[in-house]
């Protein structure tokens, strides 16, 4: 079985994240970047299956600027067997539609039986790419899974819907997305880090994938304005000397909140 796992480099949420005020796009130079934790969990789901099924092949797929190589290496160090890195100048600022088209082309080229992703990235938090891939590829889709069993012909899983959970069965080939309920990825050990240096990263351009980013060909979503909200100023801060509750009630009453 060939499993593609979507991995994504994102700004570290433990720091202040910034947008470029000219373009409205993520300012990638502004701070630390990390491999998104949810994509590491997705990788762990694939690796757990591969542990028990040595014929399984786990490929980490990322569409990202050239600078993302070290994050992709981390996915290899955790345990992916190889990686595909789609890099192209024309993808700078790609919208969801173009991103899905590109990722679908890379998955089709690789011939994946199963695609595993996180449910929501911590930066864009769009949560639509898995469904878009399923539509492009005509794969069965099962999103927002909190427990996953992979079998040779199907994924059976627990899916968290807006109203509660359900049991689902997705025949392969399939695209599934997982939630934070699934375990964290194993930590890359020294052996894994050394092995990752020798694992192949296939670098693909749009031309390699036969995709064009021509804005005349398909509609795209563009950013037309960006503004920064002034940072929230702290207000009153009191130290409780026995009357804090009374003062709080006064504050709530004055602001008509009770």
């Amino acid at each position: 079985m060939k499993i593609f796992v979507l991995v994504k480099e994102v700004p570290d949420t433990y720091e202040d994240r910034r947008l470029d005020m000219e373009t409205g796009l993520a300012d990638r130079g502004a701070g630390q970047v990390v491999l998104d934790e949810i994509t590491e969990r997705a990788l762990e789901v694939a690796l757990k299956y591969a542990d028990a099924n040595p014929d399984a092949e786990v490929v980490a797929l990322s569409m990202a600027p050239e600078s993302a190589t070290s994050s992709i290496r981390r996915a290899l160090a955790i345990g992916a067997g190889s990686a595909v890195h789609v890099v192209d100048e024309a993808l700078h600022g790609a919208d969801l539609g173009l991103t899905a088209t590109v990722l679908a082309a890379a998955i089709r080229r690789g011939g994946a039986d199963l695609v595993i992703t996180g449910n929501l990235s911590t930066d864009g938090a769009g949560g639509v790419i898995p469904a878009m891939l399923a539509e492009h590829l005509n794969y069965a889709q099962a999103t927002n899974l909190s427990a996953v069993q992979i079998a040779p012909d199907a994924v059976t899983a627990t899916r968290e819907t807006d109203y509660g959970s359900q049991q689902v069965t997705a025949p392969l080939p399939a695209v599934v997305s997982i939630t934070e309920a699934l375990p964290e990825a194993r930590f890359p050990n020294f052996k894994g880090i050394m092995a990752a240096k020798k694992k192949p990263i296939e670098v693909l351009s749009l031309a390699d994938l036969g995709v064009t980013a021509d804005p005349a060909e398909a509609p795209q979503t563009i950013l037309t304005a960006v503004s920064e909200k002034p940072p929230r100023a702290g207000g009153v801060k009191i130290v409780d000397e026995g009357d804090a509750a009374v003062q709080l009630i006064d504050f709530l009453v004055k602001n008509r909140l009770v």
């Binding site: 919208d95 949560g127 639509v128 898995p130 469904a131 539509e135 889709q141 927002n144």
Partner: peptide, 24 residues
């Protein structure tokens, strides 16, 4: 709606009908 069910439908409809998608 930007719900779990809504996101699935929005993503697929945008791909199927070649429409621009804005989320959240």
């Amino acid at each position: 709606s930007n719900s779990i069910a809504g996101r699935d439908v929005a993503g697929r409809l945008a791909v199927r009908e070649h429409l621009a998608l804005s989320v959240d």
